[in-house]
Amino acid sequence: MTIVSFYTVKTFAHSVSDCGYKHSVSTTHWDIYEDSVHWGSYNTALTVDCGLFEGTSFETYINNAVSKWNAATFNGSDLMTMKIDNTSVSAIFRSKTSAQISAVCGSSAWAITYRAGAVIDSSGYQHYSTNAESIAIWVNWNDVLKDKSTTAKTHVPLHELGHVIGLKDIPATVSTNSYLMCNEFGSSAAPTSITTADKQGAAVILGQHTSHSFTYSQYSSTAHKKTCSICGVYQYYTHTYNSNGVCIYCGYTSG
C-alpha cells in the first residue's frame, strides 16, 4: 500500500542478509518494502496521533490497534513500543475522502498509508516531519468506512500501523485474509489480529533479529527444509544421517 509506501517497485530487491536463503512472501507470509522505508528499531517508541479522530468513535479502533501492537511479543520478547502520543508523533491519522484517496492511489480504498513527506535518515529509517503530510494514515471514514463492519474498522488501523512499521501487503494470490497484512479480502472477512507471520516480519524490520534460528522438517527422501523460526527464510539441504540411518536434523529415517 503506498504511493510511496503502498506502491512498490515491481522488481524485488530486498534481502534479509539471506546468504542463499530463500525469502518470498508466498512462503514467509510477510514482506518488507524493498526500499527499506520503515520504522527505526524496537526500542524506539512508535508514537501515534489520532489527529481529528480524537473524540470520535474511530478513536476506539485506533487505541485498540496501538495497544495490540504494543502488547505483541515474539520469540519471548516484547516486539516493540507503540503508544498514543499527540505531542511527539511518528504517524498521524487523517480523515480523507474517497476522491482524495483515489487521487493518490489510483483505486478506491478504505485506507492507505501515505508517507510522501516522511524524512528518511541515512539508515533508511523513516521519521515524521512536522512540516509535511509525513507519515499519515489516510482513512476513508466519512464516505465509506463508518458504515462498514466492526471487523473492517478493527482491521484498518491495525493493518495501516503494520505499514508504518514497514510491512508490505500480502497479495490475494498468497492469501485473502490469513494474515494481518492481507489487503484484498474478496468475500473473506478482514483479519483483526497480528499473526505470527506479521510479527516475524516486524521483528526483522525492527532489528530484533540478529541471527537465524533454524527448525528442520523433512521435505523429500533426499532433503529437509531448514527454516528460520524468526524471520521465515528457508533453504533445502540434503539429509545428514547418523549410524542408525536417521537424519540428525529432521529425524527422517532413510529407507
Binding site: 506502491y7 492511489c105 478506491s108 485506507a111
Partner: peptide, 11 residues
C-alpha cells in the same frame, strides 16, 4: 513503475 495496493480496495 508502481503497483497500487490499498486497504479494502474493491475486487
Amino acid at each position: 513503475l508502481l503497483s497500487s495496493s490499498a486497504t479494502g480496495n474493491p475486487t
